[in-house]
Write a protein that binds this DNA or RNA. Sequence first.
DNA 1: CACTTACGTAAGTTACGACTTACGGATGGC
DNA 2: GCCATCCGTAAGTCGTAACTTACGTAAGTG
Lengths: 99, 99
Amino acid sequence: MSALADPTRRAIFERLVDGPKAVGQLAEGLPVSRPAVSQHLKVLREAGLVVDRAVGTRRVYQLNPAGLGALRAWLDRFWDQALAAFTAAAESEGKHEHD
Amino acid sequence: MSALADPTRRAIFERLVDGPKAVGQLAEGLPVSRPAVSQHLKVLREAGLVVDRAVGTRRVYQLNPAGLGALRAWLDRFWDQALAAFTAAAESEGKHEHD
DNA sequence: CACTTACGTAAGTTACGACTTACGGATGGC
DNA sequence: GCCATCCGTAAGTCGTAACTTACGTAAGTG
């Protein structure tokens, strides 16, 4: 969750939606240096949001659906309970009006 | 998205899942001061994740399903494309093996 | 109408994270 | 084997956000 907090990291993440890319490719369209991108990718990798593999001298990164799935599951857990709690609160409000 | 980056803010968020709570109630179980909680709630409110209303002298906060829904929609947009890109990459890998 | 309760905001400090430059290691080409 | 390419990591700087204490304000209580 906190892995997607930084705007630059989100930009990298969004760029990877189009498909796997090398570090240099990712850094090319961003306003930060290549080492900075490397550091961001490390965070994303440790968060399970991307996976990497070596291809010759370069390192290709791509999104990890499992990581996204975990995030979705986490969010859904809130979603259900939040809606229930919200509805309950709304009904409680209605009762007060009815008094 | 960045609103849920801070651990303390996530703790507040999770506590609100059980239902609406006042600022003092929220601060009670947290290792930070009450003003700190107020500041966090301001961030969450501006992010559209919670709504607040005055009840007597206290201010009750609760989750905003609309905000959660927006987050879910944002995430789902990635989910679909990420899965497609991942599948495509996997197939491309399979072809190489087949060579 | 004093007093208490509950909260938001201002000001200031501090810790953390994002970034840069510099360097070293691994792979490919000729 | 030698040079070029591509990348990760280390060290250091700097901005920002998270936290504290102090204060002011609005609403209940007797």
